[in-house]
Design a protein around this nucleic acid. Sequence first.
DNA 1: GTGTAAATAAGAATTGTTCTCAAACAGAAA
DNA 2: TTTCTGTTTGAGAACAATTCTTATTTACAC
Lengths: 136, 136
Amino acid sequence: METTAKRFRKREAILACLQGTTSHPGAEWVFEQLKPQIPDLSLGTVYRNLSLFKEQGKIISLGTVKGVERFDANTAPHVHFICNGCGRVLDLAQIQVPTQLSDAAASSMGGRVDSCQLTFAGLCGACKTPYKEETP
Amino acid sequence: METTAKRFRKREAILACLQGTTSHPGAEWVFEQLKPQIPDLSLGTVYRNLSLFKEQGKIISLGTVKGVERFDANTAPHVHFICNGCGRVLDLAQIQVPTQLSDAAASSMGGRVDSCQLTFAGLCGACKTPYKEETP
DNA sequence: GTGTAAATAAGAATTGTTCTCAAACAGAAA
DNA sequence: TTTCTGTTTGAGAACAATTCTTATTTACAC
């Protein structure tokens, strides 16, 4: 029977959805993705569980892009690029934040550094050379 | 009469307020600061003008911290530290993001890098060692 | 004075997110 | 099986930050 996954926890589906994409989506996107498979999914459940995963450290928040909080199931420290054109968030896996920067940060303000986020913004390859956009 | 500047543009007051602080505030904070001097200031005006300044490049947005967008009139690239204890945002003027990182970012994704933000998070000196009393 | 375009106040509308609560569910115990 | 108990959920109300609308005010040119 095809009663496989649908009867089980939606929580797992939400985490799996995030783990199965590199698009650093927001809650709404996850909801839209899962809705066809899980028609009785509620947007509130998506928010609730994303929030839970964040607390548990299973996912991280990249902050809000254009008013929407974006998430990443890749919890390893890595660098991001936000396209101001299309809003996409890309991983820049090649780039590492030098550890001496973290050390310098900690010592320069006498506190403790728990995490760091390096984010570049600009235009991605596709948006850099766009089709001509007209205002009517 | 002391009706000198207050009857003139609120826009200027909003920018000046942001330029006169290092606290990386949000719209509400700016509004509260100016309200005593400009009693008929509207919160909408603060939002509108912050948005305008951002567009014009006169200020930058640090993104949202706990749901509130924070701004900085210091448009020179610099590093920030967010204290998870007290929520303050500090400048780490001593630290620079190596330019080769930006270059690497741009070339690795074939786009254009317009800005970068390096943000550390953790506990500031005060929050790291709480209740440390000074000698009386 | 009149005309005009920019800036504003006030608050309504919008939007992303959180909260409430009753119902559904999963698993343990009887 | 049936009952019990704590967990998860759907639906939508509530909320807060931000944006939008509109009528009014201002600055300035004529």
